[in-house]
Amino acid sequence: MKSAFHAAFGAVALLCIATFWLSTVMAELFTSYQEIAVVKVTILRGMWILIPCMIITAASGFSLASGRPGRLVDSKKRRTRIAAANGLLVLLPCAIVLARLVEAGRTDALFYSIQALELIAGAANLTLLGLNMRDGLRLTGRLSKRAR
């Protein structure tokens, strides 16, 4: 049961990050300033879903891993810590600043510099969480250790 709980919240967190990242890219490439503003503000509001999901996923993951040795468990723990730090120290501040800048009508070099940082950090978290999902599937036996 705890494993299913962990997987469900992890999947929602991964889906949130992927949605935020893709929405940003699509808005920047194909929409107007007003729609970019809506996306940035909506992403900030979406943190009320993402952050609790990440906390629950990390807590349940560390609980599931307690006393369980192994390379996959150690890798998942390390990636989780990096993703959490990236989220709290880079992604959340970027989301806040970008939403404030776009609300002020500023889409200048500062906006796009922070936007680039956010996209890079978001891609890193997508990669880290995707690898954690893969290793979680391996740990539960739902994915062969040899599968790519």
Rank of each mutant, 00 (worst) to 15 (best):
P69L: 08
A37E: 10
A121E: 03
R81W: 10
V39W: 04
Q115W: 01
A124F: 13
L92E: 08
R81Q: 11
G87F: 04
Y33D: 12
I120L: 14
R106Q: 13
A99S: 13
G105I: 08
L98T: 05
R79G: 03
T42A: 15
L110I: 12
I51F: 14
S32P: 04
P52N: 05
I43E: 07
L44G: 01
L64Y: 09
G46K: 06
R68S: 11
A124I: 13
L88F: 15
V73R: 04
A99I: 07
K76H: 07
S66Q: 12
P69Q: 12
T31I: 01
V41E: 09
A99N: 07
A84S: 12
S75A: 14
G61F: 03
A109C: 07
A85P: 03
E35G: 01
G61A: 10
S63Y: 13
I82E: 08
G46D: 05
L98K: 03
L119S: 05
A104F: 06
L91S: 09
R106G: 05
Y112P: 01
N125D: 15
L44N: 01
F62N: 06
M47R: 08
L101I: 09
Y112C: 02
L64T: 11
W48A: 15
A123I: 14
I114Q: 03
A99R: 04
I114H: 00
A59F: 12
T80G: 11
V102P: 02
L64G: 03
A65N: 12
N86K: 06
L89S: 10
V73A: 05
K76D: 11
R81V: 10
A124E: 08
L110M: 12
P52H: 05
T31Q: 02
V73T: 15
A116K: 09
P52W: 01
F111Y: 15
S63N: 11
L92W: 14
R68C: 08
G67I: 15
G70A: 03
G61S: 11
T57F: 04
L119Q: 08
I96G: 01
L89M: 14
I36Y: 01
I96H: 07
V41W: 00
A58K: 06
L50P: 00
N125P: 01
Y33A: 10
A85E: 02
Y33E: 12
W48I: 14
A95Y: 04
A116C: 04
G67N: 11
A65S: 15
I55S: 14
A59K: 10
G67A: 11
V41S: 10
L117M: 10
N125C: 13
V97E: 03
L64V: 09
I56T: 11
V39L: 07
A95M: 10
T42F: 08
C94R: 00
L98P: 03
L92S: 04
N86F: 02
G61T: 04
T57M: 12
